[in-house]
Simulated assay, not measured.
Amino acid sequence: MTEKLLIFDMDGTLVDTRHDITTSINYVRGLKNMPPLAQNEVLEIINHKRDELAKKLYDTDSYLPEDRAVFEEHYRDQCTKNVVPFDGVVETLTVLKKTGAKMSVATNAPTEFGERILKAAGIEYFFDFIIGACKVNNPKPDSEMIHLIGKLYNGGNLNRESTFIIGDNYTDITAGKNAGIKSVFADWGYGKFHEEAKPHYHAGNFSEILTIVA
């Protein structure tokens, strides 16, 4: 049996972080005398392209260094307070681990937050590598994270038939396409499906991954 390499997005795919993300965004907005956003508003906004987020969240044309710094300082503690794995995550990862699948995480969050969040959710031990945006020059939808993970495992040679990226955002699916690997769209997550992204598979719940990658 060919060894599988599974690369997971984090927020909205492995773990539910919506409460903590919203809390920290609203903390920054409060300091700017802006009204708070509801969770559903935040989830709607973060589905937009990266270059549109600052305008929609903070009414600035680009992320101001001071806004980013305040958010990260607040989120560093906030990110572990309410995070939980999605239904079926622990059970499915346990089965995948027993089959010998290699598993890592590629998140556009800073690596530090990824490690803290996954540890708080009790699932960090499933993953060989947790790669955040700070580890690459070009985060998702670029394929740089995927190629870095491939390099960490076996010098960069990705078996395109047995390597999968699983995520809930068009950035995950596009990163997989750019790397030439298979992609699975997580229907349970925060993201809206973009038809043009053209994932290879859809998963209605986390446990369906077992059937898809079998």
Rank of each mutant, 00 (worst) to 15 (best):
residue 146 I to R: 05
residue 69 A to H: 10
residue 66 E to N: 14
residue 159 N to W: 02
residue 101 A to G: 06
residue 122 G to P: 03
residue 83 V to C: 07
residue 100 G to L: 03
residue 145 M to H: 13
residue 98 K to D: 15
residue 115 E to A: 10
residue 133 A to I: 13
residue 144 E to H: 07
residue 135 K to I: 07
residue 97 K to N: 09
residue 104 S to R: 05
residue 69 A to K: 15
residue 119 K to R: 12
residue 106 A to V: 05
residue 125 Y to P: 04
residue 90 V to S: 01
residue 111 T to Q: 05
residue 90 V to P: 00
residue 144 E to P: 04
residue 115 E to P: 06
residue 119 K to G: 11
residue 128 D to A: 12
residue 160 R to P: 00
residue 125 Y to G: 14
residue 105 V to G: 07
residue 148 L to N: 01
residue 92 T to D: 01
residue 96 L to A: 14
residue 156 G to C: 09
residue 137 N to I: 04
residue 115 E to H: 10
residue 81 K to P: 00
residue 154 N to D: 11
residue 95 V to M: 04
residue 136 V to A: 00
residue 102 K to W: 07
residue 160 R to H: 09
residue 134 C to G: 13
residue 161 E to F: 11
residue 148 L to S: 03
residue 135 K to S: 15
residue 104 S to P: 14
residue 118 L to N: 10
residue 145 M to D: 05
residue 148 L to W: 01
residue 110 P to K: 04
residue 80 T to H: 03
residue 112 E to L: 09
residue 141 P to Y: 07
residue 154 N to M: 06
residue 147 H to P: 00
residue 70 V to I: 13
residue 99 T to G: 00
residue 104 S to T: 13
residue 155 G to E: 02
residue 82 N to D: 11
residue 150 G to V: 09
residue 130 I to R: 06
residue 138 N to I: 06
residue 130 I to D: 09
residue 89 V to F: 02
residue 70 V to W: 02
residue 152 L to I: 03
residue 143 S to L: 04
residue 103 M to Y: 09
residue 125 Y to W: 13
residue 157 N to K: 09
residue 78 Q to A: 15
residue 101 A to T: 08
residue 160 R to N: 05
residue 82 N to M: 15
residue 122 G to W: 04
residue 111 T to A: 02
residue 152 L to G: 07
residue 160 R to C: 05
residue 72 E to R: 01
residue 102 K to P: 01
residue 72 E to H: 04
residue 70 V to A: 14
residue 113 F to V: 02
residue 92 T to N: 01
residue 131 I to K: 08
residue 115 E to S: 11
residue 157 N to I: 08
residue 157 N to M: 03
residue 123 I to M: 11
residue 70 V to R: 07
residue 153 Y to D: 01
residue 109 A to N: 02
residue 90 V to K: 02
residue 80 T to K: 08
residue 69 A to C: 00
residue 96 L to V: 07
residue 106 A to D: 12
residue 155 G to Y: 01
residue 124 E to T: 06
residue 83 V to Q: 05
residue 66 E to D: 12
residue 102 K to I: 05
residue 120 A to F: 01
residue 137 N to D: 14
residue 121 A to Q: 11
residue 146 I to L: 14
residue 94 T to A: 05
residue 145 M to S: 11
residue 91 E to P: 00
residue 88 G to M: 05
residue 101 A to Q: 08
residue 69 A to T: 06
residue 146 I to H: 02
residue 80 T to C: 11
